[in-house]
Simulated assay, not measured.
Amino acid sequence: MVRAGVLAVLARDPQVDVVTEAGDGREALVLARLHRPDVVLLDIQMPGMDGLTAAARLRQESAGVGVIMLTTFGQNEYITRALEDGADGFLLKADDPRELLNGVRAVGAGGAYLSPRVAGRVVAGLRARRVAYPRRSLEGLTEREREVLAGLAAGWSNAEIAGGLHLVEGTVKAHVSAVFSKLGVRNRVEAAIAAYEAGLRPPRCA
């Protein structure tokens, strides 16, 4: 029933095509390798292999595939682990259905997306602990990589960063990978936090 509801929401957007459905986490990995979708939706609890483990495996095996967790489990530890394991988005099934389309569009374009409810929990958790991630030095980044990082902090997709910096999208992807590697971050959310801590400003235009 839940999957049918998800399909009904996604069908509202003519630019979104559902290429396949998986009955469990292991099948999701196999089908992701086969179809190479832009975005994979996973739940926290799935038969065969839980969604968090599947998300980590997808990040290792299919780096170009965006991963969104869509779940009823919105506890902070699940959100943190999902983002650390490489998820690009986190949504709750209780969110407004429009958030699902917003998330799929954003992650499909190379960005990241947290629903407002999830983002609120992340912010509250960071404030409560006062420290989110260890402060990272940006000294090893080139000037261009700093500009790309600033775009990530602004929440821009790879295409938007490419437009703002007058680069081809493939070059931006290479810079994003270099930024992740040099900063030791796993995803765009952690990269954005590093940028904000360093006081980077977004590029002037997109």
Score class of each variant (00 low, 15 high):
53 T>G: 10
58 L>M: 12
58 L>D: 04
120 G>L: 12
45 Q>C: 07
122 V>I: 09
79 I>K: 13
96 D>H: 03
46 M>A: 03
86 G>I: 01
55 A>Y: 04
58 L>Y: 04
121 R>M: 04
104 V>W: 00
81 R>D: 11
74 G>R: 14
114 L>H: 01
122 V>N: 07
54 A>V: 05
65 V>H: 02
88 D>N: 15
62 S>Y: 11
117 R>V: 14
44 I>S: 07
106 A>L: 13
105 R>W: 07
56 A>N: 09
121 R>P: 00
64 G>K: 10
74 G>P: 07
107 V>Y: 11
47 P>M: 04
106 A>V: 09
68 I>V: 14
96 D>I: 03
106 A>Q: 14
78 Y>N: 14
45 Q>S: 10
54 A>T: 07
94 A>I: 13
50 D>W: 02
69 M>H: 00
98 R>T: 15
111 G>L: 01
72 T>P: 07
72 T>N: 14
114 L>N: 01
55 A>S: 14
84 E>K: 03
91 L>H: 13
86 G>R: 00
96 D>Y: 02
120 G>P: 03
117 R>F: 10
55 A>I: 04
118 V>T: 08
74 G>C: 10
99 E>N: 10
91 L>G: 11
121 R>L: 05
52 L>S: 06
57 R>L: 13
109 A>Q: 12
83 L>K: 00
52 L>G: 04
56 A>M: 09
51 G>H: 01
43 D>F: 07
55 A>C: 10
62 S>E: 15
43 D>L: 05
122 V>E: 06
121 R>E: 02
68 I>N: 00
49 M>D: 05
58 L>A: 05
65 V>F: 00
116 P>K: 01
75 Q>G: 13
53 T>D: 12
93 K>S: 14
68 I>M: 04
65 V>R: 00
53 T>R: 15
71 T>I: 13
86 G>H: 00
50 D>V: 03
66 G>R: 06
48 G>R: 04
108 G>R: 02
86 G>F: 00
54 A>K: 02
102 N>F: 11
58 L>H: 03
50 D>Q: 02
71 T>Q: 08
109 A>P: 06
118 V>Y: 03
107 V>N: 13
115 S>Q: 08
105 R>K: 09
58 L>W: 05
65 V>E: 00
92 L>H: 02
57 R>Q: 15
89 G>P: 06
101 L>R: 11
83 L>D: 00
89 G>Y: 05
105 R>N: 06
68 I>H: 02
121 R>G: 01
107 V>A: 11
84 E>D: 06
79 I>P: 05
84 E>Y: 03
64 G>A: 08
114 L>W: 01
